[in-house]
Design a protein around this nucleic acid. Structure first.
Length: 882
RNA sequence: GGGUGGUUAGCUCAGUUGGUUAGAGCGCCUGCUCGACACGCAGGAGGUCACUGGUUCGACUCCAGUAUCACCCACCA
């Protein structure tokens, strides 16, 4: 079959994905007897669209999956999505809003139905996008966090933690998003530094003409003030402790008390205390038995406890309160003040600290074991420094608020009894109160934090709490691949639930990759206009080029700024591979079939390329084992382009096209090697570029051979190590480089073949020159070649120097003397500076005393070479200048 | 207030135990329709490896500090 002269990814990508899927290659068979290798996908939100971060994340997982599959493992890469409570509810609420409706118009049951409908129709778009990328996920095992099975796992975990008193209800200050109308956990609140004001407000003191001045950034909360605090050691103010202040605007009498929490250095030394709207004030309130007055409703609108301000939004109330205080002469001053303000991680609204009853997980006891498994190395973070981040958070972990006032999610399985107040928590929905048997029970309205269910992902997806064969075979998973942004949200919690409920770590390695900045990311990408849409990139350059770029960028670090130019570059690489294949196929002949390479007949360059390939195989394996995707990608690239195409293919041409008998005879072994290297090269590349490799493979494989996706991964073999030939070839290449340099620099036209004189008496060099005459002629565009140890150069010769060798290109009328002088002087300058470095090292006694012998020898050799080369260069220079 | 990471060629980025001629892609310059590829070939220019000091025979690589840009954590009203 003829190949077109350029590679067109769009024509083949869809075909192959469908083929792989239909053939069942992605499916992991629990009953096979292969060694298991498993990864669970970080489940994208059902609302998700493939962004470049997903693309990176899944490309890396796919590389690992395909690599291990080729190595003969039983690979399970588990797909699925997350119901993403807040995010998804928001999406559907927005859709309703377009129809002028709210969720309350539908009611809970109808609304939930609506979300499911939406999920069936518009959700899971990301699946097609993942397929587009080539992700070899086991789609027969697709999971969703709200599936019956996973929901059972969630309930089981809730019930058992509740029974152990590790889940409890508490009346506390939590982070409340007034837009999403739900509680959030601490890590769902993002703090940002904002410019604000510090308002200084006068409170009068009962039975006294004195005033005290409090400073606040949130004056609207004063409506709920129930005390004023002073540091008991504060000499300025402590005489007021025990007195009563009059809260302005509300005219409420509130106690003045001492509490060491107050920082004497900050503000005025007086702190207004609002126990229902500030976590610190809440604590102080508890210590001093203050009243807790909630002054806002769930939308952050002032409620009936806010007197005249009732019905105002928190910021309108703030404005009005400031204005009223000012007109009453109670506003002492307004200072600019930068402070950090919590925002909802889903909608970016300013979060309100809010007193309410919520469910919490008492997490410390579970965290301890999870810390241990990382400390003792049972779980390994790669790169290791993320362990520190993990430990830091785990050591200071605080109880986890898990209840959300949403309708989309796992409903909390707690049932309140209206008669006796008992709470029944059980696996099955109870009909009656388990304590008093009353049937007046009702289920808690709240749902669980989305992350509660994703915390169970590695085992819930495999069927836990049932004892399934999946769990037996594939748990613990081999590696988790994710970004550092969800180490707390997800990774830490999976480790905790894993060790708690499975008595076993959820994964052996955690590979943390960099974050790709996208349009929601940093201003950097925005201002530079570097927003990259994976789907557009795949359309333009093909999935393979895009994947390869991501892999090449996947060095450790925190940010990746992808550049489209780079993707374009790798699409050229695809084309290069395509054309190299085309060349090989053209020359193999239609009926060529490689059985096994005839080692006896290998020639020197054959051995060299096989040695280089062998080396590359070894290094790629080492890199992948350490998750160094960029290194592996770089080595493949370099091998294919700069070794195989630039050199081997060019060298082979002489043999293949030769009419003379000795070279023509060697063309058969060359074809064997071409075919062998092509195949191994494709195999090595398949995890990175699955589509083009399968396409080419399908055109060259024999009938008996399997598809590349399940073909064996290349292995390093001792009998293909050829160091002598490798050295030989390197010297040969160096000669070619030298001559080409002269040609290039002297602007010798390509059609003008030049004669070359090699001046040497080194036997190996002579042998190389004599043996490879044809190749030197072809690759360096040379006609006559002479070896003359006694050659006396003409002043019109252009020259180059290598250890033990001088190369002369007689140019006669062609030489530009000035240019040649310049060229040699440049060489001399370079060598001189190198020589200086070496000489100063070698003349240093301490160096000779302390440096390892091999380094000293190396430097000495270098020095000798440099001196020799320098001498010859200077000689040439003199000769020309004469 | 703590902590982490970056600062290497015009741009985007590599560079694991300290000893390399400091690399790649793109861009740039010169010359090429040479029997796979102009998505190409050959040659070339371009770097005081942020700065300062230290350790060392030797530092892009280790240590300390400075500058600068990011990010994470934290209950300063």
């Amino acid at each position: 079959m003829e190949l077109s002269s350029s590679y067109k990814p769009e024509e083949i990508e869809k075909k192959w994905y469908k083929y792989w899927e239909d053939t069942g290659y992605f499916h992991a068979d629990v009953n096979d007897d292969k060694e298991p290798y498993s990864i669970v996908i970080p489940p994208p939100n059902v609302t998700g669209n493939l962004h470049v971060g997903h693309a990176l994340n899944n490309t890396l997982q796919d590389i690992l999956s395909r690599w291990q599959r080729m190595k003969g493992k039983s690979v399970l890469w588990m797909p699925g999505t997350d119901h993403a409570g807040i995010a998804t509810q928001n999406v559907v609420e927005r859709l309703l809003a377009k129809e002028g409706k709210t969720k309350y118009d539908l009611g809970r049951v109808e609304f939930e139905k609506k979300v499911w409908e939406w999920k069936e129709h518009s959700g899971n778009q990301i699946y097609d996008q993942l397929k587009r990328l080539g992700s070899s996920l086991d789609w027969e095992r697709e999971r969703f966090t709200l599936d019956a099975g996973l929901s059972k796992a969630v309930r089981r975990v809730f019930v058992s933690l509740y029974n152990e008193n590790l889940i409890y209800q508490g009346y506390r200050i939590i982070n409340w998003c007034p837009r999403c109308e739900t509680a959030l956990s601490d890590i769902e609140t993002e703090f940002k530094e904002l410019d604000g004001n510090l308002w200084h407000i006068k409170y009068s003191i009962k039975g006294n003409d004195e005033f005290l001045v409090v400073a606040t950034t949130r004056p609207e909360t004063m409506l709920g003030d129930t005390g004023v605090a002073i540091n008991p050691d504060d000499e300025r103010h402590k005489h007021l402790i025990g007195k009563t202040a009059i809260l302005p605007l509300m005219n409420r009498e509130i106690p003045i008390f001492g509490d060491s929490y107050v920082d004497m250095e900050f503000g005025t030394g007086f702190v207004k205390v609002t126990p229902a709207h500030d976590p610190n004030d809440f604590e102080m309130g508890k210590r001093h038995s203050l009243e807790e007055i909630i002054v806002m409703d769930e939308n952050a609108v002032i409620n009936e406890n806010g007197g005249a301000y009732r019905g105002l939004d928190r910021y309108e109330a703030r404005k009005k309160i400031i204005a009223d205080l000012e007109s009453a002469g109670l506003l002492v001053k307004t200072e600019k003040h930068v402070h950090s303000v919590g925002h909802c991680y889903r909608c970016s609204s300013v979060v309100e600290p809010y007193l309410s009853k919520q469910w919490f997980v008492k997490i410390k006891p579970i965290a301890d074991e999870a810390i241990k498994v990382v400390e003792d190395g049972r779980i390994r973070f790669v790169p290791k420094n993320w362990e520190k981040t993990y430990f830091e958070w785990m050591y200071n972990i605080r109880d986890w608020c898990i209840s959300r006032q949403l309708w989309w999610g796992h409903r909390i399985p707690a049932f309140y009894c209206d008669d006796c107040g008992h709470i029944t928590v059980s696996m099955e929905d109870p009909k009656v109160c388990e304590k008093c048997a009353s049937d007046k029970i009702r289920q808690d309205e709240d749902v669980l934090d989305t992350w509660f269910s994703s915390a169970l992902w590695p085992f819930s997806t495999m069927g836990w709490p049932d004892e399934t064969s999946e769990l037996k075979k594939y748990y613990p998973t081999s590696v988790l691949v994710t970004g550092f942004d969800i180490i707390f949200f997800w990774v830490a919690r999976m480790i905790m639930t894993g060790v708690k409920f499975m008595n076993e770590i959820p994964f052996r390695d955690v590979y943390i990759h960099a974050l790709v900045r996208d349009e929601h990311g940093q201003k950097m990408s925005k201002s530079k206009g570097n927003v990259i849409d994976p789907l557009i990139m795949m359309d333009k350059y093909g999935s393979d080029a895009f994947r390869f770029t991501l892999a090449a960028f996947a060095a450790q670090g925190r940010d990746i700024m992808l550049s489209e130019k780079r993707i374009e570059g790798y699409s050229s690489f695809c084309n290069k591979i395509w054309n190299a294949t085309r060349f090989i196929l053209m020359n193999l002949g239609g009926d060529f079939e490689l059985k096994e390479i005839d080692l006896e007949k290998l020639e020197v360059f054959d051995k060299w390329i096989l040695n280089t390939l062998n080396d590359t195989i070894k290094k790629i394996n080492e890199s992948l084992e350490q998750y160094k995707f960029n290194e592996a990608a770089g080595m493949i690239y370099d091998f294919w382009w700069h070794e195989f195409c630039d050199w081997y293919l060019e060298l082979v041409k002489q043999r293949i096209y030769a009419k003379e008998s000795n070279l023509a005879e060697s063309s058969n072994i060359a074809k064997q090697v071409l075919c062998h290297v092509l195949k191994k090269g494709l195999l090595l590349m398949h995890p990175f570029m699955p589509f083009i490799t399968e396409e080419i493979w399908s055109r060259i494989k024999s009938k008996e051979e399997k598809d590349i996706i399940i073909s064996g991964w290349p292995v390093f073999t001792e009998n293909l190590i050829f160091s002598e030939e490798s050295n030989y070839t390197n010297i040969f290449k160096e000669m070619i480089y030298k001559i080409r340099n002269i040609r290039g620099e002297m602007n010798i036209p390509p059609d003008k073949k030049a004669p070359v004189v090699f001046k040497t008496s080194n036997e190996l060099l002579k042998q190389i020159i004599e043996t490879e005459t044809v190749h030197i002629q072809a690759l360096a565009k040379v006609d006559s070649i002479t070896i003359d140890p006694e050659y006396a150069p003409d002043k019109t010769d252009s020259s180059a120097v290598m250890p033990d060798l001088e190369i002369f290109v007689p140019l006669k009328g062609l030489i530009d003397i000035a240019k040649e002088i310049q060229r040699i002087e440049k060489e001399i300058a370079k060598i001189k500076s190198d020589l200086d470095k070496v000489t100063s090292k070698l003349s240093n006694d301490n160096f000779r005393k302390n440096a390892p012998q091999e380094i000293i020898e190396k430097e000495s050799t270098k020095e000798k070479e440099y001196i020799e080369i320098l001498g010859k260069l200077e000689e040439s220079l003199l000769n020309i200048k004469e």
